[in-house]
Design a protein around this nucleic acid. Sequence first.
DNA 1: CGTCTATTTGAATGTACTCAAAAGCGGTGG
DNA 2: CCACCGCTTTTGAGTACATTCAAATAGACG
Lengths: 212, 212
Amino acid sequence: MAKKVENEMTWEHTHFSISVDILLNSVCEHIILTEEDKDFFVSLLEPKKIKRKELLVFEGEITQQQYYILKGCFRAYQIDKDGVERVSYLAIEGQWISGLHSFLSQNPSQIFVEALENSELLGISKINLELLYTTVPSFEKFFRLFYQNALLAAMERVSQSISLNAEQRYLNFIQTRPDLEQRIPQKHIASYLGITPEFLSMLRSRMVKRKA
Amino acid sequence: MAKKVENEMTWEHTHFSISVDILLNSVCEHIILTEEDKDFFVSLLEPKKIKRKELLVFEGEITQQQYYILKGCFRAYQIDKDGVERVSYLAIEGQWISGLHSFLSQNPSQIFVEALENSELLGISKINLELLYTTVPSFEKFFRLFYQNALLAAMERVSQSISLNAEQRYLNFIQTRPDLEQRIPQKHIASYLGITPEFLSMLRSRMVKRKA
DNA sequence: CGTCTATTTGAATGTACTCAAAAGCGGTGG
DNA sequence: CCACCGCTTTTGAGTACATTCAAATAGACG
């Protein structure tokens, strides 16, 4: 209960343009919850705002929360031994973001997560998530389904990164994520696709010329 | 109960060199089960033997079962528009294999799964798996954890396929899966790594020369 | 308006692929 | 037990794909 009061405080002090109902609706598409379950779930969530270019997850630190994105846009990336940034994941509102490996294992993160726009999030800590699993077991099912779908998406991406060349991967990207194409710098898209920004620029101009 | 008797029949007629206990032990590392739960779980499993070069999952057909590998070795692959085989997954005993996308969505499979050795499996159908989830809810947790770990592994593979070149991917492969290296044809490893068998052969000889 | 960052362009280089042919290897039948 | 067949692996030459580095141009933001 102390927890709940603390969060109600937090809610009062954070003026969100979009409400927690978005998340509740997305959860209730997959599992059935009583009003009590919903209230308990909401009491475990911590709202958070973050500005463009700020970091949500830091390399070397243990990731404390998993976040649902209410509004905004993020990139997860690592810095390889040559100092080059490698974008591994891009997420927008309606998706979850976290340093998943660190969050689950409670080891220091290998990755950074950066806000690409001013954003609004709902976070849940590992302890509260465990509490949620035991208190409302339906959430085991919710996250089982969540990880199941995330795995299928990741497997699809593996198979595309192996079987498609850069141009085909880019075409696939703008088809499947037209939203992101407009919204984030090309260099991040290039990195996400595993190519240099120069080469992506060349591909784009080649594609325009072919159409003309 | 009819189901259970039917499976006991199946068990009697299948002479396995390795018992179902292997699977039970691996499950009980993550969740606590009563003897009753265990018996029920085992009653849902269907043993299966398959010979080298035979197909476990066919493209175009709906994948009916998810399999735990007791013994043997498998590859999952698709055939792209140019008729080239692309290996997306390699699995050995202790791992699960299936046409996961087809199994979960009950749509026709895009992939084949082929036995690379004479193998022994324990299969569970989608219906029985759903029944298991509702009858023994701990299995929601078991598979939540299962998919969680599978997702981490898939994400790791994505990030490696983007950030490492062919030689680094091969080195990583022989380090993390030394078992497979010895056991399966090089051309499948090449395909799994996203390179041609000729190029893998060249990499190997170059690596030997550098050491000498 | 000026500064900083992102994007474009081009030349030279490196990485991986294709195609063809030879060599190795395992199983099968005589 | 050897010879042959089919499949896998190796080798090499020529080509395509993608990177690096450098410099010019365009855009965004204070």
